[in-house]
Amino acid sequence: MLDLRRRAFDVVAAAVTNAPAPGKEPEPVNVLAIVLFMLTLITAGAGFILFDYAFQVVKILTIVEDLPSDYDLAPAYEPDAEVESEGENGSPPTYRDDEHEDTEEVPTTPKVAPGLYLGGSPNKYITSSFRQTIRYLRHEAGFFSAWRGFNVNIVYSIAASCANGIFISMFPFPFGKYIAGVLVMVAVSPLSLVHTHVVLAPPTKETWFGRLSRLPFRSIVHTLPAALLVAVTGQLTYALPDIMVKAFVPQLAFDTPPPPSNDNPYQSMLTPLQCLAIYSVFLACHVFLFIPAMIILYRVQASVYAPTEEAIIPFERTGPQTVVRAWTSYTLEGKKRLLRLYVRVMPLVWLAAFTVGTVLFFELRWVMGDKGRALDVILHQWLRNQHGRAP
Rank of each mutant, 00 (worst) to 15 (best):
T127R: 10
S128W: 10
S129H: 00
F130G: 12
F130W: 13
F130V: 09
F130T: 13
F130L: 15
R131F: 09
Q132Y: 14
T133E: 02
T133M: 07
T133W: 13
I134D: 05
I134G: 06
Y136C: 05
Y136R: 07
R138G: 07
E140R: 14
E140K: 15
A141W: 10
G142R: 02
F143M: 11
F144S: 03
F144W: 13
A146H: 08
W147T: 10
G149K: 00
G149H: 03
N151R: 05
V152F: 00
I154A: 03
V155C: 05
V155H: 03
Y156K: 07
S157G: 07
S157P: 01
A159I: 00
A160Q: 02
A160T: 03
S161P: 05
C162E: 04
A163Y: 03
N164I: 09
N164W: 10
G165V: 07
G165W: 04
G165H: 10
I166G: 00
I166T: 12
I168N: 12
I168L: 07
M170T: 07
F171D: 02
P172H: 14
P172S: 09
P174D: 05
F175D: 04
F175S: 03
G176A: 08
A180P: 05
A180G: 11
V182R: 04
V182E: 00
V182S: 02
L183T: 09
L183Y: 10
V184E: 02
M185V: 04
M185W: 05
A187C: 08
A187I: 06
V188I: 10
V188M: 02
L191N: 11
L191V: 04
S192W: 02
L200A: 04
A201S: 12
P202Q: 06
P202M: 03
T204R: 11
T204L: 06
T204M: 10
K205L: 02
E206D: 06
E206V: 11
E206F: 04
T207S: 13
W208M: 00
F209K: 04
F209P: 01
G210L: 09
G210Y: 10
R211E: 00
L212M: 11
S213C: 12
S213F: 06
L215P: 07
L215E: 06
P216A: 05
P216V: 11
F217G: 13
F217R: 11
R218A: 12
V221N: 01
T223V: 15
L224Q: 06
L224C: 08
P225R: 03
A226L: 04
A227H: 00
A227G: 09
L228H: 04
L229W: 11
L229F: 15
A231Q: 08
A231G: 09
V232K: 02
V232L: 03
T233C: 11
T233Y: 01
G234P: 05
Q235S: 15
Q235R: 11
Q235V: 13
L236Y: 12
T237I: 06
T237N: 15
T237F: 14
Y238V: 15
Y238F: 14
A239W: 15
P241Y: 08
D242I: 09
D242T: 14
D242W: 12
I243T: 13
I243R: 07
M244C: 06
M244E: 04
M244I: 11
A247N: 10
A247R: 12
F248S: 08
V249R: 13
P250N: 08
Q251H: 15
F254R: 08
D255I: 13
D255W: 08
T256P: 06
P257C: 09
P257S: 12
P258E: 09
P259W: 06
P259E: 01
P259D: 07
